[in-house]
Simulated assay, not measured.
Amino acid sequence: MADNNANEYSTVTLSLDDGTECECAIVRIFPAGDNNYIALLPLEGEAASNDEVYLYRYTEKDNGEPVLENIESDEEYETVADAFDEELDAMEYEELYAEEDAENEE
């Protein structure tokens, strides 16, 4: 995974099945069920213009290297998508709370 210092987020470059590469922003790593998952937002191409988010099962090797695995079943994907929706709600809440704190400090 590459850290892109020019922006406020980390990025990862995915090698897609068709042989192309896609740079994605890491939105969040979150738990769902018994596994951790990662949400990636493509930064270019058709997926980026459609605001698509890629969801993968996320683990790390013993040396800390990240491993992304495809979500194989519709049932697992539904569980992960619901958990990601909850994460988005939590992120929005955190942003609102941070804005209120900033306003109160002024």
Rank of each mutant, 00 (worst) to 15 (best):
P42F: 10
M91D: 05
E86P: 00
E69D: 14
G33S: 04
F30I: 04
L68P: 06
E69M: 10
E95G: 00
S49H: 14
Y37E: 08
P31V: 04
L88V: 10
V80C: 03
N36A: 06
N63S: 12
P42K: 08
A81N: 05
I71L: 10
I71S: 06
E69N: 09
D82A: 13
L41K: 15
I29E: 02
A47N: 07
E69F: 06
G33D: 04
S49G: 04
Y56W: 15
L55W: 08
R57H: 14
Y93E: 11
N63P: 07
N35A: 15
E65V: 12
P42Q: 12
D51I: 07
V67G: 04
E92C: 02
A47R: 09
E65F: 09
A39Q: 05
P31N: 02
E94A: 14
V80L: 03
N35K: 15
G33R: 04
L40T: 07
N35G: 01
A83L: 03
D51W: 14
D62W: 08
L88D: 00
E46M: 12
E94Q: 10
L96G: 02
F84A: 00
E94L: 06
E60S: 06
E78W: 06
E78C: 03
A47Q: 12
L41C: 07
G45F: 12
Y37G: 05
Y93W: 06
N50C: 08
E46S: 13
D82T: 08
Y56V: 07
I29R: 03
Y54Q: 08
Y93N: 02
N50L: 15
M91Y: 01
P31T: 00
M91R: 05
Y77R: 15
A90Y: 01
V67F: 13
I71Y: 08
R28V: 04
N35D: 13
A39I: 07
M91P: 00
M91K: 00
R57V: 03
E46G: 10
E76S: 10
P31G: 06
E94H: 04
E65T: 15
E86Q: 06
N36L: 12
D89F: 05
L96H: 00
A47D: 14
A90F: 04
A48E: 13
E75A: 14
L40F: 13
Y56A: 12
R28N: 12
Y93R: 10
E78T: 09
L68Q: 06
G64T: 09
D85M: 02
D51S: 14
P66L: 09
N70S: 08
E46K: 12
S73P: 06
E86N: 07
E52H: 14
T79V: 10
F30T: 05
N36Y: 12
G45K: 10
R28A: 11
S73Q: 05
A39K: 03
A48F: 11
G33I: 03
E87F: 00
V80H: 00
E87Q: 13
Y58V: 11
Y54S: 06
A39R: 02
G33W: 01
L41E: 13
G64C: 10
S49K: 13
T79L: 12
I29V: 15
G45A: 09
L43A: 05
E44F: 09
N70K: 14
N70T: 09
E72M: 13
L96Q: 05
A32M: 01
T79D: 07
L55G: 06
G45N: 11
N50S: 14
E46W: 13
T59Q: 10
E69R: 13
E94M: 09
E44Q: 11
L68I: 14
L40D: 11
A83E: 00
E65N: 11
V67M: 11
L68D: 11
E65Q: 15
